[in-house]
Design a protein around this nucleic acid. Structure first.
Lengths: 201, 201, 201, 201
DNA sequence: GATGAATGAGTCTTCATTCAT
DNA sequence: AATGAATGAAGACTCATTCAT
């Protein structure tokens, strides 16, 4: 029987994670010291270490936690029947990202950029992220198949290529909005709709 | 050693920059120590510091140098008359990125991800990158106007939204290809062409 | 290790200060490295830095600590009623300096010389020292007034000038004794008494 | 036959020394880098090193040169016949120090404080300075003998003690004026005269 | 003789992690 | 369980000095 209840443990974990997020967003992953996080969390160093074995573990959790949550929301959108048409799908997913971002002291876009950079030197993180994005793209490929089958795409369309294009668009939304900050989900939807409405090249 | 020739100075700078790139790609910006770069460059610490006043300066140069070069190539593509149609433009720019990446010991995509993460905590870098991407997007907006004027887009299309969509696609290509590694410029072109060939939503 | 007791903290501080004094006296302020002090203190670098935020802070404390203590002793001597006559006062204050100096691993005279040199480039230290010496001189001026009032000085004597002369004598004792090393407090008292016993110029 | 004339060499030496003085006064002996001096001198590093073999050598020369010059002036004052009475002598020597100080970009008082501090860790410098001050004090002792013989001091006065008192006064003038900056040679003379004019203790 | 680029040991400082209390 | 003082390896950067040109 644990000395501390499971809920309390979970609450503490979240408390630490929130502290980590706010520090990471402000200073980046490496310029944030464990002490920064300890102070932001209001706990002691020892306490933090009893929840996360190392800074790497904390980084992993910080980057991965939100990715997992977002992933579930995206999966739900992809499973809609009939599938949302391309422009609406892009708009919708971008909106999910934006809503996530709107949360208290937590900016998914910034965390994503930090995570991508970190993934280059952290194999575990890289593989985990790869898994999420590969799964996401697989879902998009299936959606593209459904678009083709329902006539939204021509019969000779290549679902994998379409999925790659759509994934790129969504990832690029994250980058563009983090760097330039003036992109709305509607812009993406409108832009894609305009392109689809044009003459076939 | 009397005053060194300008070419030699430039060569040394490049030598250091190459060393920095290869270290940064392997270990990230902050996990790379100046000593790593010093050793990789084959010079002494003092020599490196006589070319770049600080690690921050070196990071700035490492991230910025290629962005400038790429920017020029992209601008040339955007100025083609008549403008390349959307799918070909996206394919072409992605191809430029991929070619840049092909260079020895230098991967533009990885450097870009590192740079974006760093830009969050480095104002000077952020503003510089912002300038490049804003200029790029401006060029895309003008291209979208030309597409509309030439009938490739409907008369009521919104060039800024189209530009945002296209920029997102290209930036997302960088991310997707760095993280998943199996995206070719042709995929993007094909995917966009397929979408444009579909029924208008 | 839970919160340490205040006494222990103070003891540690003193331990570091003693280490710093012994190093500074041997090698000077700048030729002493923090590592020298760390080793002399028997603590770790991190521990030393948790007591003094920087080398400058440590220098400030090393120079200032004793000045404060001495200052109190001198003030007590100056407040004696009736005031000590000039030659005895000078002898007495010089003796205070010499006694301070006699302490283990700490030579006030050497620290003073180092502090004066450092004060030239360290504004905070300069202002702090200035405060001490100005206060000391003010006390001497008041004493000179009392000498004049009690007839030890002629009615037209200038107390500020007398105070400057006496302060110079005491400061010069520090210098002379640090550089030549063969001056006793009694010498100063005797010398001044001899001068005062001479024919009026 | 030297490639460069002796005058030119001497001029260069002085040029470097002036540069060193101005740097040392501003930043202290150790916080001044050879590069600071090189730049201030307008010469190249190699050139500076051809005149002074090391930084230590340059420090030694910077501290010693002026001490030697001052020493000659002081000796002349001490040899006056009949000897200046104590208060006038002190005023006169202090005036010499003050005049020396008034020179272009050179402050004898500041250099003296730096030199005293440095002497603690530099044996050669220490011995050289000791020589100067010991010689100065010997001269003062002889002067005190003459004062006693001429009746300015009582027959049982102790010339060595008087010399120590006078030396302390002059050295202390340097300190006080460097730290507090509001002491004039006249103040010392007046203060000593007032003391000598008082009742014998 | 003169130059100033290059060296590399050494400096101050930080910080992830541990463990005595 | 919790604390936070302590560790010490490693980091960024400097600078006295040399020597190829």
């Amino acid at each position: 029987m644990p000395r501390i209840s499971d809920e309390r443990r979970a609450a503490r974990r979240t408390q630490i994670l929130e502290a980590a997020w706010s520090c990471f967003q402000k200073d980046g992953l490496h310029a944030t010291s464990m002490d920064d996080i300890v102070r932001a969390s209001g706990l002691s160093a020892g306490a933090v270490y009893s929840y996360f074995a190392s800074k790497e573990e904390l980084i992993f959790a910080a980057v991965t936690t939100s990715l997992g949550a977002l992933s579930g929301l995206v999966a739900a959108v992809l499973e809609a029947t009939p599938p949302l048409p391309p422009d609406q799908l892009v708009r919708r997913i971008a909106a999910l990202v934006a809503e996530f971002t709107a949360r208290e002291s937590y900016d998914l876009r910034r965390i994503a950029l930090l995570g991508w950079a970190e993934a280059q030197r952290n194999e575990r993180l890289r593989e985990t992220m790869r898994g999420y994005y590969a799964g996401f793209r697989l879902g998009l490929t299936e959606t593209a198949v459904r678009w083709r089958d329902s006539g939204l795409l021509p019969p000779d369309a290549a679902p994998p290529a379409v999925a790659k294009l759509v994934l790129a668009t969504v990832l690029g939304f994250v980058v563009q909005s983090a760097l330039l900050g003036d992109v709305e989900p509607e812009d993406l939807g409108r832009g894609l709709a305009d392109l689809m409405a044009g003459d076939r090249p």
